[in-house]
Design a protein around this nucleic acid. Structure first.
Lengths: 113, 113
DNA sequence: ACTTTAATTCAATATTTCTATAATTATGGA
DNA sequence: TCCATAATTATAGAAATATTGAATTAAAGT
C-alpha cells in the first residue's frame, strides 16, 4: 500500500458516521448492505450518508454495486488488511512482532503448542 | 477500545507528517526517538512537529519521556493492536476471518499444516 | 547568574472537511 | 407515459485542522 492510499483510508475511517458504516459492512461481510438500510440504521439523512459513502469509496475501503433500485455497499477486505500491514510494517525493526492484535496472537500461540 | 478512542487514533494517523512519525516510531520500537531527531529526519519546523507529536500523544498512539534535555517519543503498541482489533471486530459475522493481514495469515497457515 | 541546547506553547491565518436543503438521475411497475 | 422508490449531485454556510513566526519553559554546563 502506498502512503497516499493509507492516509486516504485512515482519514475516511476517522469520522463518527463513516466508522459506523465501515464496521457495519465489515461485520456484514461480502453480502453487503443497501444504502437506504445503512441510513436507517445510522439515522442519517441520505445526502449526508451519500457523502460519507463516497469518501469511503474514494478511499478504496468499500465497493458498491447496483441491485435493481438499490445500491449495495460492501467492505473491501484487501484494503483493510493492506492498511494494517502498512501501519505495522517492519515493526520493532523486524526483530520482534509487537503489533499483532491479541486475538491473532492467541490463535498463533494456541496453534504453536 | 472505545469508539471515541478509535476515531481519535485514526484521525491522528490520517496526516502526512504524523503517519511518517508513527511509522518511524513503530520501526524503532520501545527505545524511541528524540523529538529533535524526528524533526531532522522529516524536515519539519519544530513547532509544527511539536503540534503533531501532541496530536499523536493525545490520541494515545505515542508516549513521551524526558531524558536529560531531550524528549524521547515511542510508539504505544497496545494502542495500535487495540485499533486493529476494533476495526476488524466480529469480521464477516464472526464466521470467517477475512481481516487478518496477509503476513499473519501466512504464519497461521504454515503453523497449521 | 549567564549561555547554549532542546522542545513547547501562543496566536493568527490558511486550509480542509462536514452537514443538509434543494434539485437531479435511475429503476421498476401500473 | 406517469408515478413511486432509491439514491446521488450541487451548493453554500458552519466547523474542525494545519501551519509557522514569535515568545516561553526546561535542563545542563560555565
Amino acid at each position: 500500500m502506498k502512503k497516499a492510499a493509507a492516509i486516504s483510508a485512515l482519514g475516511a475511517l476517522a469520522q463518527d458516521t463513516r466508522l459506523d458504516i465501515f464496521r457495519l459492512l465489515v461485520q456484514k461481510g461480502p453480502a453487503g448492505v443497501a444504502a437506504g438500510e445503512i441510513g436507517e440504521r445510522l439515522g442519517q439523512p441520505l445526502p449526508t450518508l451519500s457523502f460519507h459513502l463516497n469518501q469511503l469509496r474514494f478511499a478504496g475501503l468499500v465497493t458498491s454495486r447496483r441491485e435493481s433500485r438499490s445500491i449495495i455497499y460492501s467492505a473491501n477486505f484487501d484494503a483493510i488488511t493492506g492498511l494494517i500491514a502498512y501501519l505495522t510494517e517492519n515493526c520493532c525493526g523486524g526483530q520482534r512482532e509487537c503489533c499483532i492484535p491479541a486475538a491473532t496472537q492467541k490463535r498463533i500461540r494456541r496453534v504453536s503448542l
